[in-house]
Design a protein around this nucleic acid. Structure first.
Lengths: 158, 158
DNA sequence: TAAAACCCTGGAGTGCGCTCCAAGCAAGCG
DNA sequence: CGCTTGCTTGGAGCGCACTCCAGGGTTTTA
């Protein structure tokens, strides 16, 4: 029987949709050192996924302890927050890797980053519109079934 | 060299985000008979995908011509519209199959359909919230890079 | 100090949603 | 009549984003 690796019972749909800055039990900058499993609980990702993100170039360089274990820092958590948000928009991982490369490349890539974020923003806007469209359809159907349900109830009562 | 099967250059992001009832060149009810490739162009799906939807039970029974070719009707196009919208919400195909089964099962499944649509609606709402959250982050970053760009420009001018 | 819990790596496996292939049938056209 | 085009089927293949495994080393707890 080996390790279980955080099966993360907190599903994808977060209950607190109106939280300001997400206050997690982070350590203050300066003594911010997290093991991979701590980061897993903080982010909801598995340790597997965190290592995989690193392999494909989606993470900046992660510090290591003297024996080679990963030691994440607050800025890594910030990055993972961003990654999580971008993933939620449906952005493919490859595109995020591209953005990560631009960040690694230095300040002279500002313009490219700007373009990338701007077109992502457009995507998000149109996806929101799409969802609101779907919402309207859903509401029509829901009303239909609600009415049908009431009709059946009053029929039973008569 | 065999057939090409509609590589659909119209991407996933539709440009007309504010269209009322989507006016497609449909034939009037009564003489509504479409071949699979017509439906492919109308929906943006490939013929492969249409057949696959049928195989997995996502479609109602589709009429056939005397030689066994599919002949879609307007109600099938309506169904595919709904399916497209639900797909856009990220609903797994298996869940849509479940809904399709309820529809096939008859009127006595109204309550279950209601529940399914209602929880889907909740998903959509929280996904919209999520996207708006992401939008805020994106806007902050975009502003940062825009400012940085302006700063560089004025630096060059001095 | 020993057991339990945790972490490391490269590579293989999984599930989803298509996507395509091979082989064949059917209709229209010169 | 053959050619082209389009449709049919079952089944295989693919790309993405993980997800896990084997086989080892490390850290923590009792």
């Amino acid at each position: 029987m080996t390790v279980m690796e955080t099966t993360s019972t907190t599903g994808t749909a977060s209950t607190d949709s109106c939280a300001g800055p997400p206050r997690q039990p982070r350590r203050p900058d300066g003594q911010d050192k997290y093991t991979i499993s701590e980061v897993a609980t903080l982010t909801g990702l598995t340790a597997h996924t965190l290592r995989w993100y690193e392999r494909i170039g989606l993470m900046p360089h992660i510090d290591r302890s003297h024996t080679g274990q990963r030691r994440y820092r607050n800025r890594d958590l910030d990055w993972l927050d961003l990654v999580g948000k971008l993933r939620a928009t449906g952005m493919p991982v490859a595109d995020m890797v591209r953005y990560a490369e631009l960040v690694r490349a230095g300040d002279h890539t500002y313009a490219e980053r700007f373009d990338l974020l701007k077109s992502t923003r457009d995507d998000v806007l149109s996806r929101i519109a799409e969802l609101q469209d779907t919402l309207a359809v859903l509401d029509r159907k829901i009303n239909f079934y609600a009415d049908a349900g009431r009709a059946l109830a009053s029929e039973r009562a008569s």
